[in-house]
Amino acid sequence: MAITIISDGSMDFPTEILNKAGIMIVPLSVHFDHEQFKSSELSYEDFYAKMKNSSVLPKTSSPSPMEFLNLYKEETDKGNDVLVLALSSALSSTYNHAALAKDMLLEEEFSGNIEVIDSRSASNGLGLMVYEAYRAVQLGNSFADVVALANSNVQKIRTLFFLETLENVVKGGRLDRVKGALASFLNIKLLMHRTDEGSIDVLEKVRGSQKALQRLVDMIGELKEGFGKDVLAIAHSNCEEKAKALKEQIMRKYPFKEVFISEMGPVIGTYAGEGGIVVSL
């Protein structure tokens, strides 16, 4: 029996890999004042151009339970088992809607296998979980084993964030305007991480981009040991050259088996702001 992996529009990972793997994506909605788009409808270029020209931070909203349910039915009608990996419940109602859709499916006396997992992550942290689940499917693992691996990766995979600008954090009300202006004047950069509970918290404040990115590289070594079989994911918000330079810097120090670079989509890009970097391992 085939296994279908479903995620949502908050995930960042190379599109060509997701397409090849047949990963199904339920988009979130992105709101610019009175305009509304599905996260899948906006190109990266259009999104960052719109965000740059907007005085108000774009807002995002979760898919409805029916959007998930319709996709579940489409896949289960084919006889497929379904594994859903969703954006952290600490950041969005997306997971709750996906879980509610599962309950609705089970009420219709569905007798197959479906599992909905709170990734407690986002961006390429979620993408890495999806990729590892896909690799497990390709190796012929059972549905139960793939689910067990995905659950273990919720705890195992770590995610770090670098913010080049505090503009979106201020616009979103997560940082006082006066404090934000002072931090910007002092060239303070935020290094953040995904907590065990699935929220995003500040780890350190570092003065200057170069020092902050070097500190991010050092943190990778503090998070884990032994890199020969491991995968690293880097997502960037409209700063590809910075991401490539960071990859080279990381690989000089840590011999990861694979490193994937992807653009940061509208959902996470809304909060990271232009120039942001997310690293997951």
Rank of each mutant, 00 (worst) to 15 (best):
A2M: 12
I6L: 10
I6G: 05
S10N: 15
S10C: 11
P14V: 11
T15E: 14
T15G: 01
E16W: 07
L18H: 00
K20Y: 04
G22I: 06
S29W: 01
H31L: 04
H34Q: 14
E35K: 13
F37E: 10
S40H: 11
E41M: 08
Y44R: 03
E45T: 13
D46E: 15
F47G: 12
A49Y: 05
K50I: 02
S54R: 10
S61E: 07
S62H: 07
P65A: 08
E67T: 11
L69R: 03
L69V: 05
D77H: 12
K78S: 05
K78L: 13
L83Q: 01
L87Y: 01
S88V: 01
S89Q: 13
A90P: 00
S92G: 06
S93M: 03
T94Y: 05
H97A: 09
D103N: 12
L105F: 02
E108Y: 00
E108A: 13
E109F: 07
G112P: 05
N113R: 14
S121Y: 13
F143Y: 07
V146P: 06
L149S: 04
N153S: 11
V154N: 12
Q155I: 06
F162N: 08
N168T: 14
V170W: 04
V170P: 07
R174C: 09
L175N: 11
R177K: 15
G180L: 07
G180D: 09
A181P: 01
L182E: 09
L182M: 15
L182Y: 12
K189R: 15
E197H: 04
S199V: 01
I200K: 02
V202N: 08
E204K: 13
V206G: 02
G208R: 04
S209G: 00
Q210A: 07
K211C: 00
K229M: 02
D230E: 15
D230V: 00
A233L: 10
A245P: 00
L246D: 11
L246Q: 02
Y254E: 08
E263S: 12
G269D: 06
G269W: 04
A272R: 00
E274M: 08
E274S: 14
V278D: 00
